[in-house]
Simulated scan of single mutants.
Amino acid sequence: MGRAGRSSRVGALGVAGILAGTVLVGCGDGGSGDAAAGSSAKPGAGAREEGTRAVRSAYDRTAEEDTARVKLRVRTSAEGTSQTADGQGAIDLADGDSVMSLTVQGQRIEQRVVDQVLYQKLPEGRAPGGKPWIRIDLGEVAKQQGAGDGSMSDPAQSAAYAKAISDEDVTEKGTATVGGVRTIRYRVSLDVSELPNGDTLRQQVGPTLPMDVWLDDEGRMRRQQVEMTLKGTASPRQSSGTASSAPQQVTVRTVMEFTGFGTRVEADAPPAGQVTDMTGELLEQGERGQGRS
């Protein structure tokens, strides 16, 4: 694959997180038990400014490595139940293409992302249409969600994401060893209104988005954890107006770890004859959900 400019790489790095948080069926455990406890004293202004600069530049520094191995855990919780998806593979940080193996509820799923299209090979007997692979156009899904055309890979989105971080939003939480590498952990609270399409996003996740990042001595991201509580919509039977009829909320926690920078990534779309396109069905489900009262 040809190398894109730095801004494109930053956009692709953002894609990795978005995919983990909104496409996978499941969600990630915190996985931060190895983090050392941070000091209880409030850091000074200089320390906060240094932390803010480090977090803002982390996307650039990581994406400059071009490719990486990625490991993730995504955990989704709703109505007292939870589901976990674990995955590992490799990602091209220039364009977001990736190859990954997922395990969801004990079943293995092969996943590829090629040119902003998601392909998943489901367990035998689970795929629709008698074909082994399903296809979802992530760009079309992003449009329906109000993210705009192609915004999942728009470099401006990730740039604005970093710029939305102020000195008050970043707190150093101590050190941790991630994948055998010493890192510094930062807690970040993003003001959702400052992000692109912030009004739409605010309706879905609330005013702030909590995030933790673990950066190595070169300022590269080694781990990222994002937790979102998505506001649900009431089902048709939930119409009494009582507390029990409150719309369902879904909490998604995604943990991603990056290692093996510079690893080779080969992501190819499966043969067309083996693929069932599920984009339309997914969009219809989303429209029905948005239409509920």
Rank of each mutant, 00 (worst) to 15 (best):
T254E: 07
E284I: 05
E281N: 11
L283E: 01
L282C: 13
P271I: 01
R288D: 13
V255Y: 06
G262K: 03
G273I: 07
D268L: 08
G273P: 03
Q274I: 07
E266C: 06
E281G: 13
F261S: 02
L282P: 07
E257G: 04
D277N: 08
M256E: 15
E266D: 12
T259H: 11
G289E: 15
T279Q: 05
T259K: 13
E257N: 04
M256G: 10
G260T: 06
P270A: 04
T276G: 05
P271Y: 00
G286K: 04
T259C: 09
Q274V: 10
R264P: 00
G262T: 03
E281F: 09
R288Y: 09
D268N: 09
G280I: 10
Q274D: 15
Q274K: 15
T259P: 03
E284Y: 02
E284F: 02
M256H: 13
E281R: 14
E281C: 09
P271C: 02
T276I: 15
D277P: 03
M256C: 12
V265R: 05
L283K: 07
P271E: 03
E287H: 08
V255F: 05
V265P: 00
M256Y: 10
T263Y: 10
E284T: 11
G273S: 11
M278H: 06
E287D: 11
E287V: 05
D277I: 07
A272R: 06
G262L: 07
D268M: 06
E266T: 12
V255W: 04
T254P: 04
V265W: 05
G273V: 06
Q274N: 13
D268H: 07
T276C: 08
D268K: 11
F258E: 04
T254Y: 03
P270V: 01
P270S: 01
F258P: 01
V275N: 00
G273H: 06
P270K: 01
V275E: 00
V255K: 10
R253T: 15
T276F: 08
V265E: 04
Q274E: 15
G260N: 11
E257A: 07
A269R: 03
E281S: 14
P271L: 02
D268G: 05
A267C: 02
G262E: 03
T263P: 09
V255H: 08
A272H: 01
G273L: 08
G262A: 08
F261K: 03
V275P: 00
R264C: 02
L283M: 09
A269Y: 02
G260V: 06
G286V: 07
P271F: 00
E257V: 05
G286M: 11
E266P: 04
A267L: 02
F261L: 03
E281P: 07
E287L: 08
L282A: 15
T259V: 13
F261Q: 01
E284P: 00
P270F: 00
R264F: 07
P271W: 00
D277K: 07
M256I: 14
V275Q: 00
G273W: 05
T259I: 09
A267E: 01
E281Y: 10
E266M: 08
E257I: 08
R253H: 11
L282R: 14
G262C: 04
G262Q: 06
T263N: 11
A267H: 00
